[in-house]
Amino acid sequence: MTSMPVESPPKRATLRHRLFRTLSGEYFWLYLLLLPSLLILVAVILIPMLFAFQMSLGNTSIVVLGGRGTISNQWVGLQNYLSLLQNPIFWQALRETLYFWVVSIFIEVTVGIGMAVLMNQSFFGRRIFRVIVFIPWAIPTVVNAMLWGMIFDGDNFGALNDLLLQWHVIQSPIVWLNPSALFPQIPWLSNALSYLGSNLAMNSIIVGDEWKTLPIVAILVLAGLQTIPHEYYEAARVEGASAWRQFRQITLPLIAPVLTVVLILRTMQLMRAFTLIFTLEQFGLPVLSIQAYQQAFSFGSFGMGSAVSFLIGLIALVIAYFYIKRLYREEL
């Protein structure tokens, strides 16, 4: 460590002295290495974010003529945010986003850990199995969307309808990707579920999304499982602990760190989920990200769109804060 530049200057040092020390130091080029990344960060992330905030405070609209756009931005203060918060559609979008998040995370915790535990058993062909399970994660999101669009197709040649009709589970094809209410026979349940953002299309979308994302959750949890020493289980078995007890008291606490990180990362992805929902539903399932896009690019109301996307960014940053705090607790 002795050869490192000492960055804490003497108390009396002026700014000029400090600048001089930094610039003339043997390690000046070290900072030069940092420069391109910092420039990208400022120019492509920070400035656009501040710009989004500025737009969200105005009645922003854009006219593009011949590839050259002019922007008109009338200052309206917090008007956009206030009207968002008063808009029931916004709250519905928020609930749908939350529903999408809660159910996906629940599936990932239960089925994801289950798959990881299964992959950790010894059986014939385990290596191949682990490779095959990984494949759906590699399928590009749009391809995944198209694939599940074909499976959930509302006509009787949708793969799922085709199977269910042939097995006589259903009598007529179901339009799986239609955001229709569940359990229409039971009004109160149907209304409650719709209020919470649950409808047929939403649940179909979750299935399609899980097909692609369960593998990565399972494989990362498996990575955590493999760090658990076998002696723990042997000791537990000597003590006569049941399999469930072993899982609860050894496995779960020891995979908790990796699980937390995976779930926070997945939370970020679910909050920003756009591609799958947009390609299959267009604006039929207006979760927050879809709403931001719709406000800006179909209604031309860039101020309102910026307000929604700024809120998404804010939510993301709050989650990111917990994620980063967690990572640093491990490292520092």
Binding site: S37, L41, I45, L46, P48, M49, F51, A52, M55, T60, I62, G69, I71, M268, M271, R272, F274, S289, A292, Y293, A296, F297, F302, G305, S306, S309, F310, I312, G313, A316, L317, I319, A320, Y321, Y323, I324, L327
Partner: peptide, 19 residues
């Protein structure tokens, strides 16, 4: 840097487009 990576694309796409 890490936080910038976690920021959703959709939150930045509108300013990108406008700029």
């Amino acid at each position: 840097f890490l936080a910038s990576n976690l920021l959703p694309t959709v939150a930045l796409i509108i300013p990108f487009y406008v700029l």
